[in-house]
Amino acid sequence: MGTRSTSWKKRGWRWVVFAGSVFLGMLLMLALLQRKLIYVPDSRPVELSDALSVCELTEDVKLDVAPGVQLCGWHSRCSPQERASKRLVILFPGNAGNRLKRVSLLEQYHQLNCDTLIFDYRGYGGSAGSPAESDISDDSLKVWDFAIEKLGYQPSQIICSGQSLGGGVATRLAWELSQRKTPPAGLILTATFSSLADAASVHYPWLPVKALLVEKYPSAERIRNVDCPLLVIHGKQDRIVPFELGQRLFEAAPDQVQGIPKTFVELPQAGHNDILHVAAEDVLHAKRAFFQQLGDD
């Protein structure tokens, strides 16, 4: 009996050691490969001719952000008439694909009489380098400066718009500009999170992701000090960035800025990647109302 008991104890310890090794291996994988899990770029160069619906109003633009690192992007006007728009929307996209996947967004902002500017992050759409939060954030400031110094827009004409991961980028940019006392005219966040750690915790609840993540995007902390009007849009059926995280981010923001109350738009039937397919008219209406609140420059 004693021998059999000892044998079971040994087997039990082996299973404990095995399970512990697997868990530690998962932690190591998350620590070492997290950027490959977070960023899913389509690195192929983008041809403007493929963006059929907007190509006649759009020009390729390049931006040198570091030695040997050049970003590729588009500046798209809402009208062929020079300087017809009084607004520019800088688009910060999600973590997958490249700018060619965002043509529908350009089309929608054209309907709202807004010019648009979008650069692919490092490693996306022909842009050089590899993506990382610190570099993307630094690059976003250079994109802002490019819009003002090269394209001739004023800060009061520029709206920052971020979708999913891009919401973290846009929020940080608006926060940094607010510290400089030159905030954008407005901030539009779609299907984004309170922090990347919060979003990761939903998908990996058994892992200590908050301790392991290098890329954090703590948007809820930063949005408290963003000094521009805010519009948040989120699909109720979102399974990638749950609806509750969008609410949490919204609740952390100031109730109003410049006399304009913050606005949250719930899309009951929309998920994460289908917003412009399921609720395009609702989104268009929400953005039009937001721009009307901002008034003319």
Rank of each mutant, 00 (worst) to 15 (best):
L230K: 01
P254F: 04
K216F: 02
I260R: 02
I275G: 11
F264L: 04
H203C: 13
V209L: 03
D238P: 13
F243T: 07
V241S: 06
E215S: 10
H272W: 03
F250G: 04
D227G: 00
R288P: 00
D238R: 13
A280C: 15
Q258E: 14
D238Y: 09
K287I: 14
A191G: 13
N273I: 12
F250E: 04
L207F: 09
A199P: 03
A279N: 10
N273L: 14
P242W: 14
A286E: 09
L284A: 08
A200I: 08
V214L: 10
K287W: 09
K236Y: 06
P268H: 15
S195N: 10
L196H: 05
E281C: 11
N273H: 10
E251H: 05
A200M: 12
V226M: 04
K262L: 13
P205M: 08
F250R: 06
I275S: 09
V257C: 00
K216H: 01
W206R: 11
N225L: 11
V241N: 02
Q258K: 15
A199K: 03
W206A: 14
V278P: 08
A279F: 02
V209Y: 01
V202R: 12
V226R: 01
D274C: 06
R222A: 08
E215A: 07
A280G: 15
Q258S: 14
L245V: 13
D274M: 09
V283N: 05
I275D: 07
L231I: 10
H234L: 02
F250Q: 07
R224D: 06
D227E: 08
Q256I: 05
F193S: 02
G259P: 01
W206Y: 15
A200F: 06
L249E: 11
Q269F: 05
P218S: 07
I240H: 03
A211P: 00
E251I: 00
P242C: 12
H203T: 15
R239T: 13
V241R: 05
R224W: 08
V257N: 00
A253P: 09
A199S: 12
Y204K: 00
Q247K: 14
T192R: 06
A220N: 03
V226A: 09
K262W: 11
L245T: 11
E266P: 14
Y217R: 00
L213G: 05
D198F: 10
R222E: 13
I240M: 07
S219W: 02
V241F: 04
A280Y: 15
D282Q: 15
Y204L: 03
I240S: 05
V265T: 15
A220H: 05
F243G: 03
A191C: 15
V226S: 07
K216M: 01
V232G: 00
A197G: 02
I233D: 02
I240E: 06
K236V: 10
A280R: 15
H203Y: 14
A199R: 05
A252V: 10
A279D: 14
G271W: 11
I275E: 07
F193V: 07
K262V: 12
E215V: 08
V232T: 12
V283W: 03
L284Y: 13
F243D: 03
D274T: 10
P205S: 09
V214M: 04
K287H: 13
